[in-house]
């Protein structure tokens, strides 16, 4: 036993880092909680949930339309992006020739790195006018879904590709030995076994989409209302904070922190929810 034990230092070092990291996270959540407390105490959850309008100058702070908008935009984005992402993963791992697969992989990585303000600007100057020609004003739930779908597509595609690759690697020999057809192999074996990996990508995408702010502020129109159609302008929880934080004070400010808290509760619930019981080889490492 020498005095200098790399393992000991690594153990201590990693624990220090974990404490710092988790300490910061806990402090931040605590900070949001403390800031949100006055609003929660003064008006009570029932009034905040029951009010259908958010109008700070009139002292009305209803969070329901904001929450509905956030969930609707995110769900719409997932409806577009999940099929595209999963099929992209199959294309990457199975159907594409090596060169095209590499190129598409690089392109997805590039897409994942596009800053949200750039995606938002593109949405505002291209997607919104296009929707506006169908039904004004163009800034709408649909525009938000499309822009967010573009942002989360690479997340879903890349994580799914990783899961699919692993299952194929593990099961290909068996499938070949059984003389299985490729489509049967993919649909019956690969996709079910890669389910957990794909699902974890979807959860990551959900968290990214519901937390996205900049692009959503630019393309969603920001009118506080429960969306009645895909063409309704909506204001999400994140957009609401971004729009009003600059000049808010007192109760208004506290109410904004309350919406932040609500957002974190939604995210936490999502992260805890989809724990698949059946262990599958595809998802274990994905």
């Amino acid at each position: 036993m020498s005095l200098w034990l790399p393992d000991r230092w690594l153990t201590t070092g990693s624990r220090i880092c974990v404490v710092i990291a988790s300490g910061l996270a806990i402090l931040m959540i605590g900070f949001i909680l403390i800031e949100a407390l006055p609003a929660l105490r003064q008006s009570g959850l029932s009034r905040l949930v029951g009010d259908a309008a958010w109008l700070a100058s009139a002292g009305r702070f209803g969070v329901t339309p904001l929450l509905a908008a956030s969930l609707a935009v995110t769900a719409g984005a997932l409806v577009i992006a999940v099929p595209l992402g999963v099929l992209s993963a199959l294309f990457l791992e199975v159907y594409a020739p090596a060169m095209i697969a590499t190129g598409y992989h690089r392109m997805l990585e590039l897409l994942a790195g596009v800053p949200s303000v750039v995606t938002g600007l593109w949405g505002l100057s291209e997607v919104v006018p296009w929707i506006n020609r169908m039904q004004p004003p163009g800034q709408s739930l649909l525009a938000g879904c499309m822009v967010l779908a573009l942002m989360i597509l690479p997340v879903i595609a890349l994580t799914s590709a990783m899961a699919v690759r692993r299952v194929i690697y593990e099961q290909r020999a068996t499938a070949l030995a059984l003389g299985m057809r490729r489509d049967t192999f993919l649909v019956r074996i690969v996709l079910p076994l890669a389910r957990r990996g794909i699902l974890s990508g979807v959860v990551l995408a959900f968290v990214r989409a519901i937390g996205e702010t900049m692009a959503v502020v630019m393309v969603c129109g920001n009118t506080v209302q429960i969306p009645s159609s895909l063409f309704s302008p909506v204001r999400t929880l994140t957009a609401n904070i971004a729009l009003e934080m600059g000049e808010a004070s007192g109760f208004h400010r506290s109410a904004l922190f309350l919406t932040a808290l609500l957002l974190m509760v939604v995210i936490a619930a999502t992260l805890l929810m989809p724990e698949d019981q059946s262990a599958s080889p595809g998802g274990r490492h994905a």
């Binding site: 100058s57 004003p137 129109g221």
Partner: peptide, 25 residues
């Protein structure tokens, strides 16, 4: 402000300008 029922709410000037520039109506 309660009397106004806008179609689009912009955060800042630039966003309002882009919204109008992208929409003939």
């Amino acid at each position: 402000n309660e009397d106004i029922h806008p179609d689009v709410i912009a955060g800042d000037n630039l966003q309002a300008i882009k919204s109008v520039a992208g929409n003939p109506y």
